[in-house]
Design a protein around this nucleic acid. Structure first.
Ligand SMILES: [Mn+2]
Ligand SMILES: [Mn+2]
Ligand SMILES: [Zn+2]
Ligand SMILES: [Zn+2]
Lengths: 131, 131
DNA sequence: TGGCGGAATAGACTATGTCTAAAACACGAC
DNA sequence: GTCGTGTTTTAGACATAGTCTATTCCGCCA
């Protein structure tokens, strides 16, 4: 998947900085914080500023290539997996794992009186077991 | 419900500041941020410090009288409702609503291979409808 | 070559939360 | 009552996440 063309098709003017950010965050399987992205991207592109990383991540979210998730205290994480899915948080390590949408079934949310539910997810916490 | 005795029974030395914080947060139906608690408590107890409010809230959490929830970007909220339940977040107003545990049924979480699930909840987002 | 508009940059600024060091307080021993 | 000790409170420093602003930079075209 060509990140450059992906950006163009979503109406994002590609610049070297934006490309570096997008390539890193879109290929990551992890749920990264903005500052963690900045850390990593600076290795390849040492002059990139913090503001540009934040601006690019927010732009990717606005254009639908990325999602934010509120899973940890104090910081948002960026998720390249934009389709609906659930999350498991390891309470010891802080690691976040994706849980496929149909691994878990939720029922009753449509019957809630007075609530217009647009989206939902299950957030599970515990310990990852040794494989 | 006597907050003073509740604190004693949970091994919390009651002080005027702790009592003011506990009485406010435990009787609140809302999901309050620490600084919002500070704002309110200062009206009754103008000399209470920010550090004491944070310390007391964290102590109440440690003693099991209060829970933290990660539902909004950038801040934790304190929930006096400590039993398991779900949450609905109004995306327009930011208001958080409690959803009773058995209003929603979740299945499949026990079958997840490699994950030792200790707790879970459903987080729903959308708009509260006019009653 | 010069001008224009968008993008990038450094750093200021705000907000949330923790930590530290000093002062205040509670309480029992004398 | 005074003292000593441990606990609590306090102000403010500090750390971190995130936004904003003013300036510089850069690509493009007249
Ligand atoms: Mn971050
Ligand atoms: Mn707060
Ligand atoms: Zn995810
Ligand atoms: Zn709640």
């Amino acid at each position: 998947m060509d990140v450059l063309n992906l950006m163009r098709r979503h109406g994002i003017q590609p610049t070297p900085q934006r490309l570096a950010v997008a390539e890193h965050v879109l290929s990551a399987r992890a749920h990264l914080t903005a500052d963690r992205v900045w850390e990593r991207v600076r290795r390849k592109c040492p002059t990139v500023s913090r503001a540009t990383v934040y601006n690019t991540l927010n732009l990717l979210v606005k254009k639908g290539l990325l999602r934010t998730q509120i899973l940890k205290e104090g910081t948002v994480v960026f998720d390249s997996h934009v389709e609906a899915h659930h999350h498991f948080v390891d309470v010891q390590t802080g690691r976040i794992y994706d849980i496929p949408w149909n691994a878990i079934r939720v029922s009753g949310h449509a019957a809630l009186r007075g609530f217009d539910v647009r989206e939902y997810q299950v957030i599970l916490r515990g310990r990852r077991r040794a494989k």
